[in-house]
Amino acid sequence: MFRESELRIFIDGALRVFETLTSQAATVGSPYLVTDGKPGTYEYAGVIDISGIRKGIVYFTAPRGMLTVLLMRMQETDTSEENMRDLVGEVANTISGNARRDLGKGFVISVPNVVSNPADGVAMPHSRSFVIPINWRTHAAKLVVCLQ
């Protein structure tokens, strides 16, 4: 059975990025399950592959609007595609770093892969995933955990 502590490791990674980059904490929205294999994405997603004891993916996805504001909060005026991707990659990186440190035993965690405007969303390995909305200011991003 999937454990809440495992879920929390990923979430903590995501929350930490907001905290450290903007010194304004993000909050966790009401989490839910998606059973049809389509948890959905915003414009940008940083995807981490996980293998070992559990196999699957974890991704962080955020809309352009949120990323733009985030960049601005970071005193970054260049809101190019490149910078958007970098930012999402940074969040995913922190999540995977957290996971590497805390999951350890039997998990192999990949370097994140950033996709923008995924036409069909992200390819999900299983139909059921956990979706954890991440709210920051008025914006919403989400963390999708699809592991078996």
């Binding site: 999937f2 979430i11 966790v28 839910y32 059973t35």
Partner: peptide
């Protein structure tokens, strides 16, 4: 109450579904 508190619920819900 925050979304954080609901994390155990989705894990349990997932388990029930499964």
């Amino acid at each position: 109450l925050t979304g954080n508190d609901f994390l155990p619920l989705i894990v349990k819900l997932d388990d029930l579904f499964t």
